[in-house]
Nucleic acid binder design. Structure first.
Length: 160
DNA sequence: ACGTTGATTGTTGAT
DNA sequence: ATCAACAATCAACGT
């Protein structure tokens, strides 16, 4: 039958090639394969180190994990495997209901907003100058968050 | 000694 | 629209 789909089809044919939990090794820090090494042209430029590298905002799951880790470690202080928390957290996470994840998602959403802000700066100045070395007093930069109404919008910080 | 892996899910960025 | 890799963690293991 016609598999038909020459072009399209957003069928599930190749929808999820990756099923394994293991993403396959996501390069940790520096494992340059000799094969595809980033061609260092004659001029070896330092691996462009971005002055402001906005790390990805933690997703709701991570936010939950941060809290969960405390609990998990509190009851399992002897646990030494990070994967233990991951598994336990993942399972629990799926157990949470939408309203329960809501607070985590809310926080994650807020993080995303900040991330966009950082990205703006990143896009604005991927590399300030050839050599990083400036901004001594100027550093304040213009990236100052002003809005921040912040206060308490919907975010409830219950500290206690 | 330093670097990397391990495991979770979600999100973001690039193609 | 879809893929792919990365976000935290933390200690143990490998080189």
């Amino acid at each position: 039958m016609t598999k038909g789909k020459g072009t399209g089809k957003t069928s599930r044919e190749v929808l999820k090639p990756v099923d394994d939990r293991k993403v396959g090794k996501r390069k940790a820090a520096s494992k340059p394969e000799k094969s595809s090494a980033p061609k260092t042209t004659k001029k070896d430029k330092k691996a462009k180190k971005d002055p402001n590298k906005p790390k990805r905002p933690p997703s709701a799951f991570f936010v939950f994990l941060e809290d969960f880790r405390k609990t998990f470690k509190a009851e399992n202080p002897n646990v030494k495997a990070v994967s233990a928390v991951g598994k336990a957290g993942g399972e629990k996470w799926k157990s949470l209901t939408k309203p329960e994840k809501a607070p985590y998602e809310a926080k994650a959403a807020k993080r995303k907003v900040e991330y966009e802000k950082l990205m703006n700066a990143y896009n604005n100045k991927p590399s300030a100058a050839d050599d990083e070395d400036e901004e001594s007093d100027k550093s304040k930069s213009e990236v100052n968050n002003e809005d921040e109404a912040s206060g308490e919008d919907d975010d409830d910080e219950d500290d206690d």
